[in-house]
């Protein structure tokens, strides 16, 4: 039963995959004029141009180009960097771990802050923490994350000197160093998510706590905390599961900005560099892998939602 559900979901994902790869591939169609010329610049030799056209398959009909790009991509061959010549897949995968560590930390921060703010503000309506939570919910979704990053760098790196302004240490290398280097970028990345979760969870908790089954829970003799814990939170968190999936994509995108600010050698930084260097295969590779990750996460959140809500039939 459950596997059928999984299967049907997968069935939905496959056409999505096809379309997203098509979108990634057709980025090259957006390049005005002769892509090879645009990528190599005006003073490129005819020889180099021909070589690049062959490498990108530009001399073939468009559908054939796509097909050959796709079949290679499926085998893990995303081409080579125009700039360094390294394999795109290797370059991307070597940076995947860094980005994943940052994004995962950001996600954890979003949830911790979101839960904390939402629950306390619901329990103590119109208290200072409620106002703080609402203020945070409004501000967090509007503040430019790179500006926030700069402010925090000024405070915590320049003035207090507690945390490094740039650079990244992997958790496998040095856990404490990781924690120090990831705190600022993950907070900047996660503040939007924390605000979103605060807003959504706050309103869904308020709604859930008004519902009849909460009254039933009280009538059994439960007090506020057990009622929230056993009957309120799980129900209120349901819509947040979907949001979390969307947030993941959002954060992954925002790494292009945050990793640039903090000089973190992840996929976001790679994307920015590859544009500045007109390294098109690399850009396509980064975009493709990020979208794949998002599709996978969306698939997982769908399944989690299905497991959390018994009303969703697996058949």
């Amino acid at each position: 039963m459950f596997f059928k559900f999984l299967f049907r979901r997968l069935f939905y994902v496959i056409p999505m995959l096809l379309i997203t790869t098509l979108v990634v591939f057709s980025l090259i169609l957006l390049i005005p004029g002769d892509p090879a010329l645009a990528l190599l610049g005006d003073n490129a030799t005819e020889e180099k141009l021909t070589l690049l056209r062959a490498q990108l398959g530009l001399d073939q009909p468009i559908m054939l180009q796509y097909w050959s790009w796709l079949t290679h991509a499926v085998q893990g061959d995303l081409g080579r960097s125009l700039f360094t010549g390294e394999f795109v897949s290797e370059a991307v995968f070597s940076r995947l771990g860094v980005t994943f560590q940052v994004v995962a930390t950001a996600m954890v921060i979003s949830f911790i802050l979101g839960l904390l703010f939402a629950i306390t503000s619901v329990i103590k309506p119109n208290s200072w923490i409620d106002y703080l939570a609402r203020f945070f919910g409004v501000l967090g979704t509007a503040i430019p994350n790179f500006w926030l990053a700069m402010i925090l760098v000024v405070i915590f790196s320049v003035n207090l000197g507690w945390l490094p302004a740039t650079g990244f240490t992997s958790i496998t290398e040095h856990p404490v160093g990781f924690f120090k280097s990831v705190l600022l970028p993950a907070f900047c990345l996660g503040s939007f998510g924390a605000a979103q979760i605060t807003r959504q969870l706050r309103s869904s908790l308020l709604e859930v706590l008004e519902s009849d089954y909460i009254r039933t829970a009280y009538s059994k003799g439960l007090l506020l905390w057990p009622v929230i814990w056993r009957h309120g939170l799980r129900n209120a968190l349901l819509p947040v599961v979907t949001t979390a999936g969307l947030l993941f994509g959002n954060m992954l995108g925002a790494t292009v900005v945050i990793e640039s600010v903090f000089a973190i050698p992840g996929m976001g930084q790679l994307a920015v560099h590859s544009i500045l260097q007109r390294d098109f295969p690399m850009l396509q590779g980064v975009v493709l892998i990020m979208v794949l990750m998002i599709l996978i996460i969306n698939f997982i959140t769908d399944v989690i939602y299905g497991m959390l809500d018994p009303r969703i039939e697996f058949e």
């Binding site: 009849d212 089954y213 129900n235 809500d309 018994p310 009303r311």
Partner: peptide, 11 residues
């Protein structure tokens, strides 16, 4: 209560 569906926790 009046409405047994909404009075039971759906989850």
């Amino acid at each position: 209560f009046q409405d047994p569906l909404s009075s039971l926790n759906p989850l």
